[in-house]
């Protein structure tokens, strides 16, 4: 119990001092899964892993890396599991298009029903 409360090492962690967090930071944090947590994003979590990832993302942004490059880097290390926005690729093709397919399919059915009625009326 005490080990949690009493902070044993009072060290100066210079990197913990707050840098400016921009909208871009928060957007990226929110799109990353905290892999050691249960269904939380890096932004929501305060785990060791989330803290480390935040530092790395900050560094990458300072280096001038783009959002996409940062995601690609993390995916290469941890797999697609780490990003909440699934990428457009062959495996995810159906994920992105199936909902629209159903939408069009539904429209066709409704259209057919209404048209049928018009024909009935004409008869």
């Amino acid at each position: 119990m005490k080990k949690i409360i009493l902070i044993i090492f009072f060290l100066t962690f210079s990197h913990l001092k707050s840098d400016e967090v921009t909208k871009l930071h928060i957007e990226i944090y929110k799109n990353l899964r905290c892999l050691v947590c249960q269904g939380q994003s890096i932004a929501d979590s305060n785990s060791e892993f989330a803290q480390t990832v935040k530092l790395v993302v900050k560094d990458k942004i300072n280096e001038g890396k783009s959002k996409k490059e940062i995601y690609e880097f993390l995916i290469s290390k941890y797999g697609e599991w780490i990003v909440y926005q699934p990428r457009f690729n062959r495996g995810n093709f159906l994920l992105w298009f199936l909902p629209y397919l159903i939408l069009i399919f539904g429209a066709i059915i409704i259209y057919a029903l209404i048209k049928k009625r018009k024909n009935n009326k004409a008869n």
Binding site: N31, G79, E80, Y84, Q85, P86, G91, N92
Partner: peptide, 16 residues
């Protein structure tokens, strides 16, 4: 489904 068929783990979250 993807994990079973393709052994790939993806996350589908708020952006989707």
């Amino acid at each position: 489904i993807l994990e079973v068929l393709n052994n790939t783990k993806i996350s589908v979250g708020p952006p989707f």
